[in-house]
Nucleic acid binder design. Structure first.
Lengths: 211, 211
DNA sequence: TGTCAATTGTCAGTGACTGTCACTAGCCTC
DNA sequence: GAGGCTAGTGACAGTCACTGACAATTGACA
């Protein structure tokens, strides 16, 4: 466990700076109206360097989101085995939202993360990538669920189905949060809880019995 | 109801040709390895004309998919009002799959459609767009469901939640179909039916009671 | 047939991204 | 602490998707 050398620290600093400046420009003037050249000019590196850190202009927009996702996966892995699959996922998101603020702030201000989340939701090109990334994570989650339940992911469709339904609701939650007025971490946590509780009843044969 | 003039027919022919040639090239040599120039050279129009018909290279890949979606929306609109929301969606997909072959063949061979569906699923850039398009359609569907049930889409989250869960399962179905061996229209119809039937039980508190 | 309007082609330009190669600067050895 | 090694960077040229502007063409229709 040796602390990283100067070279390594410089790299991390460049990467964080590119991330922060990119998100600032994106949220200030829009993703499409921001060129990679603007970003690299502000950080004073060459365009080529930018593309060595991020494989595309899109990727830098998800640098922080990436951390959030890793946190959820960790939380899910730590859920007690007694919990059913759906409760485990539900509790993992909620616990992830509780501790996410600290991790983010090391790279960008929380407020900038919140704004960039909305930018992703409202920029078609980024929304598309966001959704694809989500499905990639669904596959990861389905694997964890299958293992928890001792099931074969390719023989039993239930893990993927449950995760797909769960993620669908999570996505709607994120969308509505972005559109709403209370754009705090607490708000999205509360929405998450509320909407997940609606899922079971929503699948009932008729909604007219249970308003 | 006058039949279209020469100009209109020519336009339709150009558009269909661009679609067919594009899908053929995409499926034969891959989406990314196909340039727009190759497509327009084969059809003998200018690149500028291509971009007047399709706003992007991605869009042409979804020209057929678009028809399928419209068919589903039509089918959903014709479901009897007595059906619950979930049954209406379920039966609309199934009925759509039953009649889709005829509509597609007017533009491209069915077999080419099947291959291009798999290409979309296996090309990250296209998968991303596909998912975004799906969410756009979810919004449409949620509107229809809300109207059927006499609900306010923004006051009651249940339409969006039900549609999100439904679409999640549909997406998994499509993915597994693309990966499987039986790549026929009948196969995806059967998978659709089977997986939708799994959704309710998958949300049960414990899976251990009902294998 | 000639005029109008829709459609297309040409051309020049922007922006994302890649390969190549020379160069700079941490790092490590002696 | 001088010098070689190598990871990381910059400069440059090139490809490809896409756009705006304007000229050329071709159905439509009087």
């Amino acid at each position: 466990m040796t602390l990283p050398g100067l070279r390594e620290r410089k790299k991390q600093r460049t990467r964080d700076e590119l991330t922060r400046v990119a998100l600032e420009l994106f949220t200030a003037q829009g993703y499409e109206r921001t060129t990679v050249d603007e970003i690299v000019d502000a950080v004073e590196v060459s365009q080529r360097t930018f593309f060595r850190y991020f494989s595309s202009k899109e990727e830098v927009a998800f640098a922080v989101q990436q951390m959030v996702e890793e946190r959820f996966v960790d939380a899910l892995g730590q859920r007690p085995p007694g919990e059913g699959p759906f409760d485990a996922m539900r509790n993992a998101v909620l616990s992830a939202w509780d501790t996410i603020g600290d991790a983010i702030i090391e790279v960008v201000p929380v407020e900038l993360y919140l704004r960039s989340f909305q930018m992703i939701e409202s920029t078609p090109a980024l929304l598309a990538v966001h959704l694809r990334r989500s499905t990639e994570m669904e596959e990861t989650i389905a694997g964890i669920i299958a293992e928890r339940e001792g099931l074969d992911l390719d023989a039993d469709p239930r893990p993927r189905i449950a995760v797909a339904a769960f993620s669908g609701v999570m996505r709607v939650t994120g969308q509505l949060w972005g559109r709403g007025t209370d754009q705090s971490l607490e708000a999205i946590r509360a929405l998450t809880e509320e909407y997940l509780d609606h899922l079971g009843p929503a699948l009932a044969p008729s909604w007219r019995d249970t308003p």
